[in-house]
Design a protein around this nucleic acid. Structure first.
Lengths: 231, 231
DNA sequence: AACTTCATCTCGCCT
DNA sequence: AGGCGAGGTGAAGTT
């Protein structure tokens, strides 16, 4: 990994065009040839970047650039697409290089898959008498997150999201349309379950007769923890 | 901006939980208190991070951590949420600090807004005799990208995307449903225009009587350039 | 390899 | 401040 602090201007040409005027920034060159251009603010997204695999070439600036004070020019070319990043370095303020080795990688807990597992285990969260038919019930247009039976024996298709948005409702609608064509399952109700449901999504869901349920992941995990402690 | 190369383990607790085992990484501390943990690979997304505004405190590792070889512990606390990043530094291999100043920011060209402006200017791209009614035609459920009139005087709602996906078709369908309830506008046809249209989206659109048009941004910009040169 | 779906999405615009 | 849509979305898993 190479770290360069430099006064530079940057141009990206590819899926769109983007330009960064002259300023002091961090240039981070990774082992796979990818390059990140970071300022001293903003979030984790760089101002500009090139994704791996890519190759960095030091190219000769044209006369105009030379007159503008470009000391060194980098051309970072994507190996797979024709995306290109051109970095005009006017002044290098610092340069270091470090050998980091391969990273063992990140371990996560609390993503949608965990939520699905918890809800399947605690299907009665949705109402007394609910029972699980199965998780990831496969259909021609994709898997329904959870298929369950309610207290009256009716089939319920559950679409699960961390953040309940309008396209989640659309997705569930398509599933319900399909499932309700199956005489062995029909009629099938829909439940849209999420940690947070956007108002617009709730309106659309309600309009289509789909129930909305807001889930409390911490509470559900708490129940699961106490359950596992009992064993 | 502070750059630290360190052997460290990292834990994130917040919207979910995540853990990084001990390895050598780059720790980037920005002026706004945000922290990025980068390895020497992957893309621009850090392995772990804390978004600004945040504060970094050097805390005392507990006995277990001390015995495991933790020399220094950072607790990065988000100022707005209860997200927290804990970095256990076993060994600092390098540490530098730089003053970068405020960045002038990125200038973009070729995003959906540019595409919309171009298509509105060159509405005849869609067919001879087309005329613009207006861009961003507001409805109760959101703005229709472009409303136009075709050669026969019929109203056309145009949904514009850089990448034409199935949810763009759903969006246009909702608009069409609403617009066709208005007797002053009805009947309203739909056109789904994008630089690239996914096969699935094309099938769904066609099934619903929506025309698909693939746009060539470079060509459209070319037309616009030559037009502006004429003036 | 193409495609779909998730994301600690981020980012910007607007109300 | 919160909702909403776009993104050079990226990244992971599946067909």
């Amino acid at each position: 990994m190479r770290l360069v602090i430099a006064r530079c201007s940057v141009d990206y040409v590819g899926r769109l065009k983007a330009h960064l005027p002259l300023a002091t920034r961090l240039l981070l060159v990774k082992a796979d040839g990818s390059v990140l251009v970071h300022s001293d603010g903003g979030s984790y997204k760089p101002l500009n970047w090139m994704s791996p695999p890519a190759t960095l070439r030091v190219t000769t600036p044209d006369e105009v650039d030379l007159e503008l004070g470009v000391a060194e020019q980098w051309t970072v070319q994507s190996a797979k697409t024709d995306d290109r990043l051109i970095i005009n370095i006017h002044e290098k303020l610092s340069e270091t290089s470090h050998d980091l080795g391969v990273d063992p990688g990140l371990i996560k807990d609390g993503v949608e898959a965990d939520l699905q597992r918890l809800l399947a285990d605690q299907i009665e969260t949705l109402g007394t008498g609910y029972s699980l038919i199965r998780r990831e019930y496969f259909t021609a247009i994709g898997p329904v997150d959870i298929l369950a039976r309610d207290a009256d024996g009716g089939t319920v298709a559950i679409e699960l999201k961390r953040r309940g948005d309008i396209d989640g409702v659309e997705q569930l609608t398509r599933y319900l349309e399909l499932l309700n064509r199956d005489p062995l399952l029909a009629p099938v109700r829909g439940i849209f379950a999420a940690q947070q449901i956007k108002p617009q999504a709730k309106v659309l869901a309600t309009d289509r007769g789909i129930d909305c349920v807001t889930l409390d992941y911490d509470a559900m995990r708490g129940v699961d923890d106490s359950e596992s402690r009992l064993f």
